[in-house]
Simulated assay, not measured.
Amino acid sequence: MTSDTGVFGRALDTQGFLSQSPAIGDDLHRSTLRTNTLRRWRRGTAGTHRERCAELAAPWMETARPPQDNATLLRLRVRPFSPGGSQGIVFPGKALFSFVRRVYHCCQEGLRCGSVKGIQGRLNTDVEFLLTQDVLSIASVTRAELHLQLFNPQRLHIRPVLPSMAKRNLPTRYSLWPRGDMVELRVDLLFLFHGLQEAAGGGAGGGPSLVNMRRVGGFSRGGPAPPPAAAPRALQDTDGDVWGDGAPTPPTLELGLALGCSRDGAGVSCAPSGVHLLHTPFVALSYR
């Protein structure tokens, strides 16, 4: 009986000590705060993750207005990759890897699923994309997006315009996702990809022919490419066939992308306001 009482008493004394000791009480309080903070962080992270997954399939915004007079022009060149040529091999950049990981995680969680293939650009004076035959042979492409990340320290409103489309009163389709001082910009290039598929004999089904692309979009054939710079080398997947077996080689095409900036409705120049590329752009192809 005494032994039982003693054990019971010691238990009571221990509980009283825990409740009255300032040091241990503070530790319990801090532990509770950390647990609650961790829970809130996890809820916030899950919400942000769902938003980022929803962005992958968000509808396009459209603009048919001509570019601003003081717009910054980014020249894009799309050309066939040829083995033994002087273009050099291109490797995927960090931004492209990050995008592919996002698609993979969203697919794992059932929030957005599909296959994606990245084509990393190479930045010299222009942004150049090299295409292999296996890329244009993908028949079930649902989206072809040009991805850019722009530093935007003054948080201006940025509007991209494809001048060749605006000249024919055709809309430029795009999406913008501000992230603090950075803007993630995507421009729809599905029409261009379908046209290149037809030119290469891929038969994208419903896409405009290359002749119609030039008539409607005002694209131009690129001249001889300048010799590649020794420094930046970005991606290209070169495991597939490269215009073999008598397949027609598509021409080199050039396309301009004008970036206009404004503040409170008034146009301002982008570059003097600090707007510039944070990484070399890439193209993402989504397909079933």
Rank of each mutant, 00 (worst) to 15 (best):
R79S: 01
R233K: 03
L38E: 10
S269K: 08
S21K: 10
P171C: 08
V100R: 15
G223Y: 00
R30Y: 01
L123N: 01
A266R: 09
P228S: 13
F219P: 10
D126Q: 01
T48N: 09
L162T: 06
T142L: 12
S21A: 06
S269I: 09
G121Q: 06
R39D: 04
G267Q: 13
R50L: 11
H29S: 13
T48Y: 12
K94E: 13
G223E: 00
P227V: 06
R215A: 03
I119Q: 14
F151C: 05
A95T: 02
S98L: 15
Q68K: 06
L74G: 02
Q236R: 08
D239E: 07
A200D: 09
C53H: 01
S175Y: 01
V211I: 04
Q120V: 02
N124F: 15
A284C: 15
T132L: 14
G93H: 04
A284L: 09
D126T: 13
G206Y: 03
G222M: 03
Q154H: 03
L156D: 05
A23G: 10
E51G: 01
L253W: 06
L162P: 05
D241V: 13
R43P: 00
A258F: 00
V268P: 03
P251M: 08
L136C: 08
D241W: 10
E145D: 06
P153Y: 03
H29E: 08
G84L: 09
V127M: 03
